[in-house]
Amino acid sequence: MSLGQGAPVLMLHGLANGNMATWFSGYASPLSAQRQVLLYDQRGHGGSTLPKRGFDLDSQADDLVAVLDHYGLGQRPVDVVGHSMGALVALHHALRTPSKVRRLVLVDAPMPAREFVAPSLLGAGSPEVLSDYIDSHLAAVAGLGGRRKERLRQRLTALFFETSLVQDVLRMDAEPEAALQALQVPTLLVYGRHSPCVAAGRQLARLLPNAQLVLLDCGHYIPEEAPAALRTQLERFLEVPQVVAPQLAEAA
């Protein structure tokens, strides 16, 4: 999906309960007043198909490039924003082809995923355990019931137990230190002060030569937990002056 016009920004969502909706109304729409914003459902998420494999960072970064190529943006540097797994994909893309990334925003990137992400995936060791987790955590947090909870259950059960996702995440190591230390792309690291991934943010801030770390007063799900603060950080770092939406008549 492409919104607006201007210098392009690509936004990637997180694993499992992420999709284009993560960024759509709260971030992509306001940014699209001045920028071309690209969103897509990553493989196995939202409206995208569920392939059996290819959840490793190389395959997912290939997907990212395919999206940019689709919009004719494969040959120029674009701003890339990612949350969680989407941030790892963004970082991997930047390390493979730094000249194609203008600026990088990593929101609570859980590097290495084998340490920060795998335990929660392995914790859902069977469809029954996953189902309980959806009832007790995911659905409760998002206020989901009925139809939506069932669809989430179906999607996650398929993603966790019918694809190579868990195996792929178990193999996701940290990016090589030397490569990180050589990455000159300006990078904003936004982490939740209460996120289990905050140590990864400090590590990346130490290694990346051109990075700034900002801690927000929230946990891992920053796009949902701290939307105003995250939007302010994005607009500051990407140099997008805040646009106040025209006031609409209140619904009667």
Partner: peptide, 15 residues
């Protein structure tokens, strides 16, 4: 339709 005008800044949950 100015998409900025009708969606901007609202969370998906609000929508």
């Amino acid at each position: 339709l100015g998409i900025i005008a009708w969606l901007s800044g609202k969370s998906i949950h609000e929508l």
